[in-house]
Each structure stands twice: as C-alpha cells, then as structure tokens.
C-alpha cells in the first residue's frame, strides 16, 4: 500500500487514487505526424526500471489529476506536482 501525498489533500492511502499511466506525453499535430510518430504517441511507453513520471487522480478525494515521480523498483515517491507544473529537475 502506497501513501500518496496529493498536492491538495496531503497524504492519503493508495485506495483513494487511480493511476493514469505515464505523464508528459505530448500529442503530435495529427496532420503533420508520420504514422510512426502517431503510433508512438498512442502505444509506446517508456516502462523504465527506476524513476518513472506518471499521472494519478485522487478519485475518492478532491478528484484532481496530478503528476507523481515514482521509483518503479522501490515504490518510493520522489516528487508530487500539479498538472500545470513542469517535471522537477535533479531527481
């Protein structure tokens, strides 16, 4: 069980949240993108061993989406930041 610090509500148990997959995925311009670019946008994810930037929603709480930097090996949550914020540096 993770204790996830919602940027609005503070630490809450994992059961209140729902994961939303990898964060910071930019949608390419549909007319300009090649089939390869589009396929990567739709289907390709990084799946790293270690630091992973991902989205979560506080589904049973304030129902807001936010970003989490989580270590996929240790489950340590290194940073939590709002959707409007950039990926934190130096993690």
């Amino acid at each position: 069980m993770l204790l996830i610090p919602c940027p609005w509500c503070g630490p809450r148990e994992e059961g209140e949240f729902a994961p939303g997959g990898e964060g910071h995925i930019r949608r390419p311009e549909p007319q300009a993108a090649s089939d390869q670019d589009w396929a990567e946008y739709l289907y390709y994810r990084t799946n790293p061993k270690g630091l992973h930037f991902e989205r979560w929603v506080h589904a049973a709480g304030c129902r807001r989406w936010f970003n989490v930097a989580r270590d996929t090996v240790t489950h340590e949550i290194r940073a939590v930041y709002k959707m409007s914020e950039n990926r934190p540096e130096g993690l």
Binding site: C9, R12, G15, E16, A60, G61, C62
Partner: peptide, 10 residues
C-alpha cells in the same frame, strides 16, 4: 473536512 471512504462507502 475531507472526502474519503468509510467502510468502502464514499
């Protein structure tokens, strides 16, 4: 106040 779960009820 807080929104959470109590005995699995929202």
């Amino acid at each position: 106040c807080a929104q959470s779960g109590l005995a699995k009820a929202r």
